[in-house]
Computed example of a mutant assay.
Amino acid sequence: MNFRQRRRREEPEINFIPLIDVLLVILIFLMATTTYSRFAELKINLPSADAEKVAEQPQAINIAVSATGQYSVNNEVVAFDTPENFAAQLRQVAGDQADPLIIINADAQATHQSVVNLMEAARLAGYAKLTFATQTQDK
């Protein structure tokens, strides 16, 4: 009697389907939980715009700011010491106008703070209609 049986050796088989399923689940999990942040570079070249000119601007006060920080209201050079004093000058120039349009012509090299000072003075004077003048780009 031969108690030993010959066992057939079966070739081992590697099943990749469960492995692929697990890898896809991990990939989906990583894609869903990853936060993507975009690093933006600031390349600013202001001011310029391409818009149609308004036919008429009634009750407008033109304020210009030079690159050196000098201010002019309706083509008259004025001194800016505090926003409160400049607000009083704006009220004087506006006269009896209730809410005049204030056009800010700031040089491209003017500091941001000088424009913010103008906006603060207009707020203190009670004027809410502010706009910025730009130049059109040459094509």
Results as ranks from 00 to 15, higher is better:
E76V: 10
A32K: 07
G126D: 05
T134H: 05
F86I: 11
F29Y: 09
I102V: 12
P47L: 10
A79H: 13
G69F: 01
M119W: 01
Q89K: 14
E76K: 11
F132T: 10
E120N: 07
V22G: 07
L124E: 09
S48V: 13
T134L: 01
R91S: 14
Q89Y: 06
P100V: 00
D21C: 13
G95C: 01
A67L: 04
L24W: 07
D107P: 03
A51K: 08
K129G: 09
A122K: 02
Q109R: 11
R123T: 14
L23C: 09
A94G: 00
L27T: 12
I20F: 04
Q89G: 04
A125T: 07
Q92E: 13
A108K: 13
V54R: 01
F132I: 11
K53E: 06
I17H: 14
Q57L: 14
S114C: 06
V93F: 01
Q137N: 13
I14W: 11
F86N: 07
I26A: 11
I44G: 05
A55Y: 07
E13M: 15
Q113Y: 04
G69S: 01
N45V: 15
S37V: 02
A87I: 03
A108T: 13
I61E: 00
N62E: 05
Y71G: 05
K53N: 06
T111N: 13
F132M: 12
P12R: 02
Q89N: 12
N117P: 08
M119C: 06
T131Q: 12
F86K: 07
T34E: 03
L42N: 09
A98Q: 10
L19W: 14
A79Q: 13
V77Q: 11
D21H: 12
A60W: 04
A55T: 11
N117R: 12
N75L: 01
E41H: 10
K43V: 10
A98M: 07
A49F: 08
L118V: 07
L124M: 09
E13N: 11
K53F: 04
I44W: 02
V22H: 09
S66N: 03
P18Y: 00
D99Y: 01
S37C: 08
Y36I: 02
I61R: 00
T82D: 07
S114Y: 08
T68W: 04
E52K: 12
Q135I: 12
N85W: 03
Y36W: 06
Q135K: 14
T82F: 06
P58M: 00
L101V: 13
I104A: 00
K129A: 11
A51T: 10
L118M: 07
I102C: 05
I28N: 06
T136C: 03
E41G: 12
G69D: 01
I102Q: 03
D138S: 15
V73A: 10
L124V: 14
R123D: 15
I103M: 09
I61M: 01
E13C: 14
A121K: 00
V77R: 09
V93Q: 02
M119L: 08
I20C: 05
F86M: 12
E52P: 06
S37E: 04
I103A: 08
P100W: 00
E11C: 08
D138F: 13
